[in-house]
């Protein structure tokens, strides 16, 4: 559902209540975006695969083309390698590649050096720290490759009428980001139910309880559909550990 459809839904829900005319679109928009962020954090949506780069390969340090939560990189895979430090790098193709913080890298790969000019001949890995997001992701042991990430992205606030909830802005072209379709379209209305309940409660209309019940039921259904703990099942050690800066 689009932003304007959800707003219209809320307006219809509150319009019959006494004082419903005082509800303005700006307040509906604000509440809807706030709730979208909350649900995104609670449920882990939108979760999506992102190929970096979109076409070709990337050399050296790079940034993800979507905004994601600090704990947001769930999985990384090398899908194409054009240049590696060793011939063994080729074998990493189509396999998972670990993402380590600097401290983890020091612990598991003591011979690596945080110097991008020096080649590393050990098993390749990616270095990324949520504490320094601006640093980007640094491949170690791979010179030029294409990666695929599974990320818990930050849903962009809905602004325009046609925007959908839980949709991600893809900055594959930094100047012209593309808004992807909203995740879980069957449950977009959960936002309208929540905002209706919130506003009716403020107005003092008893029907807020009906909308709260709908919101709660739909959210539970959403949870059961997503099962955030099952979205990513780590296969080995460091990924599942708490990262340190």
């Amino acid at each position: 559902m689009t932003f304007s459809e959800l707003i219209e839904d809320v307006h219809e829900n509150v319009s019959l209540a006494q004082g419903g005319a005082a509800v303005v679109r700006g307040e509906i928009k604000r509440l809807m975006n706030l709730k979208m962020r909350e649900i995104s954090l609670e449920t882990g949506i939108p979760t999506l695969y992102v190929d970096v780069p979109n076409t070709g390969t990337v050399t050296g340090r790079f940034q993800m083309p979507v905004r994601f939560h600090p704990e947001g990189i769930k999985y990384a895979e090398v899908i194409e390698v054009t240049e590696g430090a060793t011939s063994a790098t080729e074998q990493m193709k189509n396999r998972q590649i670990p993402i380590l913080s600097v401290q983890e890298a020091n612990e598991f790969h003591p011979l690596w050096e945080d110097d991008e000019d020096k080649p590393y001949y050990g098993p390749p890995f990616l270095v990324w720290s949520p504490a320094a997001p601006d640093e980007g992701i640094r491949p170690v042991g791979i010179v030029s490759a294409k990666y695929r990430f599974l990320v818990h992205a930050v849903p962009e606030d809905m602004v325009n009428d046609a925007d959908e909830p839980f949709s991600v802005l893809d900055y594959c072209d930094p100047d012209n980001p593309i808004r992807r379709p909203g995740a879980m379209p069957a449950y977009h209305r959960v936002l309208a139910h929540f905002v209706s309940h919130e506003l009716l409660q403020r107005i003092g209309d008893e029907r807020w309880q009906a909308y709260f019940a709908r919101y709660r039921d739909m959210k539970m259904e959403m949870y059961s559909q997503i099962q955030p703990v099952n979205v990513y099942l780590p296969t080995w050690g460091p990924q599942n550990r708490r990262r340190h800066a």
Binding site: V24, R25, G26, K29
Partner: peptide
């Protein structure tokens, strides 16, 4: 008064 479809109180 409304701006871009957003009404004001």
């Amino acid at each position: 008064l409304s701006i871009g479809g957003d009404d004001g109180l």
